[in-house]
Nucleic acid binder design. Sequence first.
DNA 1: ATATTTTTTTAGTCTAAACTAAATTTATAA
DNA 2: TTATAAATTTAGTTTAGACTAAAAAAATAT
Lengths: 215, 215
Amino acid sequence: MTNSEENYLKIIYHLSLFSNSGISTNAIANAMDSKPSSVTDMIQKLADKDLVLYKKYQGVQLTEKGRKEAIYIVRKHRLWEVFLVSKLGFKWDEVHDIAEQLEHINSEKLIDNLDKFLEFPVQDPHGDPIPNKEGNLPKIKRQLLSEASLHTKLTFVGVNDSSTSFLQYLDKQNISLGSMIEILDKEEFDNSMKILVNGQEIIISNRVSNNIFIK
Amino acid sequence: MTNSEENYLKIIYHLSLFSNSGISTNAIANAMDSKPSSVTDMIQKLADKDLVLYKKYQGVQLTEKGRKEAIYIVRKHRLWEVFLVSKLGFKWDEVHDIAEQLEHINSEKLIDNLDKFLEFPVQDPHGDPIPNKEGNLPKIKRQLLSEASLHTKLTFVGVNDSSTSFLQYLDKQNISLGSMIEILDKEEFDNSMKILVNGQEIIISNRVSNNIFIK
DNA sequence: ATATTTTTTTAGTCTAAACTAAATTTATAA
DNA sequence: TTATAAATTTAGTTTAGACTAAAAAAATAT
């Protein structure tokens, strides 16, 4: 498989998590920052290889084969992220682009050995689950902060948006994986909330609470 | 730079080590396992980018810019090899193809941090010198076993041929970096020699002694 | 129910990197 | 020194992956 094919599979996989029907050409083009016509070209090629199911004008779905490939790429990406943060001292907002490259390196033994070296981590630096060698994702029980209830003990366990800007925002607020959070107040009007974190009371917007996973 | 351009630069660099004039199109095609016409195409592109000096029918030479790029690729390749062997438990005959892929990953910080993580190694698992960040190669004093003299204390410090088959041959003879070697006898007829290594006397061909660096 | 808008596909173009076959230049040998 | 051989370049094709513009299909709105 080429890098480009792998990127398509990965994106189709991610889009599939929020939809149980076919993924549209436009949605893929959008996520890939490319054009619908390019997407049509590629999904036809992926369909020829039995990696996706495709009927004209109906969007695509991953086949079992395609899903396995996609999950393997996710596994590689997340393992590399762990490596970069825990061994090479990168911060969680610096690893995405590098892992994007490393995820295409082709060597099963490399990934097995890396996994072992990292002591079989189950989540990446953003709290996302790492598929094991068999392609099974550890089920992580988690909930959006925006949907949690007032005055309960919550732990920050992951981000929904792992963009650099959001991660840096969290750094600035001193919120990191494992931080304890308590919701002190919710504002009906704009769904903002006052939370207690690290002994500090701060106000966060709905946009923020929608991108924080807690347990 | 594309992967292909990087591969060309790297090969031209390696060929330059054995020649101080222009590197021929044929030599490059041979080393790349490709065709001379493809090489001509590429070196014209590299010349446009000021990475090589090229005059039709006269072969190429790296410019300073090209040499720097090539050395940086060699640096990345060798650092990754060290990582694979010393951290991930690979054997020295297993790392070449993986490092061939990893050498194209693009991130200066990644390489700096990797270098530090590995504690600034000066040679790779085959005894080849690792250029530092500035592109300087540590001068390693070494000599071919085939050119060493009888009855002196020698140390095996590197291989000239790092093909899987040669490395596995050395493994089978229990010869590894750091092994002490003494030449007991040289055979004029075919330049084979009897050596003492690890308390064992073995006969090695000229082909073998020509691919072993000692100090 | 038809017209309009949106989405998707098709057709054709472009670039990178390879190739083959033919032409040209350089090297070698009679 | 000319003829032949070898090396190199050029010209033209191919494939992958992108693109634009136009055509076609599906969705939506009047």
